[in-house]
Amino acid sequence: MTAPTAERTTRRSGVPRKRRDDTRLALLFIFPATIGLVAFYFWPLVRGIWLSFTSWDLLSAAEFVGLQNYERMLVDPIFWNAVQVTLYYVVVNISVQTAAALLIALLMQRLAQSTMVRSLILAPYLVSNVVAALVFLWILDFQLGIGNQVLEWLGLGRVGFFTTEEWAIPTIALINVWRHMGYTALLIFAGLQAIPGNLYEAAKVDGASETRTFFGITLPLLRPILGLVLIISVIGSFQVFDTVSVTTDGGPVNASRVLQVYIYQNAFAQFDFGYAAALSVALLIILMIVTFFQYRITRAGQTDLN
């Protein structure tokens, strides 16, 4: 990663051409999408932030309470536990997922040329989250699960994947790795395709080893794509909900009570929508900070290809 920052080469055509003003047409094209964006994202966002300053139980009118929800949040041990649990999940999920996806992408590029094999890799992604979680819930069931049967045959003994505090988060994180790695691999694979072949030829001529080529050419040139993939998958990872809701519902005790589950339980089990909204704002802030740093560190907006 040695791109001099001064060399900001955005592709600009030398002579400014006189172009037709497309603004109206562009606005027309983005109009349908904007309706959805405003109605289902911006408006709920604004309303959610407003709700976080209120006490509201759905049935009676919302009452303005100022910063009370935030004060309560800062001293709520379950909130801080949820932040830790979520971070733990994200770290396990993203590190394994990205490593596995990178490996799969390289294999796809170098070995698996057949479209059939390449599309099979995407298959887990086509399974819905809830179905994937349910299937693994059965496979990994302590008593009946085939996964545990196999472990017993192997002499390793049964593992309480969803019923012990130490296994709950790693198990859930790995289920989601299984589901998402194919998709992530596909994104990285697209990035790999964009690296010019002549660089590899040059490396070969120079007698560089496979490892050297990977760290000297592939990885640096893949950086913008990897950065983008990381930003997208980290945001998705922070929002983990369905897998937890289906398998452990936050338990055992609080071991897998991730932020989204805690938000949901406050809102829809206890009807404390004000507090749930405040928790959601906290998640928003965490995501903004994480994304900002990721963007800066990976310099995802720039490429070294020029």
């Binding site: 008593q143 019923t163 055992p252």
Partner: peptide, 19 residues
Amino acid sequence: PFGIVGANPNASQQVGAGT
């Protein structure tokens, strides 16, 4: 133990399965 049956066990199934 909790580790065997999890958070939402079903007692009738345990009797049914003979466990």
